[in-house]
Amino acid sequence: MESLLTLLQEVLPDLLQGTLVTLQLTVVALAIGLAVGLPAALVRVYGGRVPRWLAVAYIEIFRGTPLVVQLFVVYYGLPDLGITFSRMAAAFVTLGLNSGAYQAEYFRGAIQAVGSGQMTAARALGMTQWQAIRYIILPQAIKLALPAWSNEAISMIKYTAVVFLIAVPDLMGKAKILGGRNFNYMELYIIAAVIYILLVFIATRLVRTIERKLYTPGLEMEAERH
């Protein structure tokens, strides 16, 4: 017990620093994912042939390959093409684009669930397609996609953990470094696990509260694991 306390005293400050990095990665990735995913969904549903095809390619490539591999292509591979990222930037970009592909699918599902009748009715009122999307379709679709989106947000906390493989000092990375110092990996990983569980628990609470506030009765969609 005493040795555990000593260990905690020793490693907690570092692990908390890592936790902050994890949270930062989570938030930024979600934001990038939203900024990319929502337009990708719109293009996939309403776009012309070529843009639609591009959106499908983006979504399917990112959903069809492992996140670690994407991370390595971006961080180690892209410099071959003259595009160089810092570790942190590579992590942001990869996590963001990866999440964007999944978010695009949630939004696409939601847009399709809203139904074509809404679009027809809006167009009949004299709205342009963009106005109909902006004022009629999207407000409904976003509410429909909310449960899936919030689960994505919670899961993002744990998805970020792979970035330690390009030496980003997130919670996972810090645990590995600290574990390597005294070869007490197991202890460090378990402490990190407890922190992840706490983060997910708190995030779940938070998200459910927000959801309840924004809840409108109707269809809901489920998130998909990735």
């Binding site: 744990k158 330690f164 493989l165 996972m172 378990i190 696990a193 992840y196 628990f201």
Partner: peptide, 18 residues
């Protein structure tokens, strides 16, 4: 609940050592 709250890579590490 516990396993699903953890990054898969962390689960792999812990179980591997375990």
């Amino acid at each position: 609940t516990v396993i699903r709250a953890l990054p898969v890579v962390l689960v792999i590490f812990i179980l591997y050592f375990g």
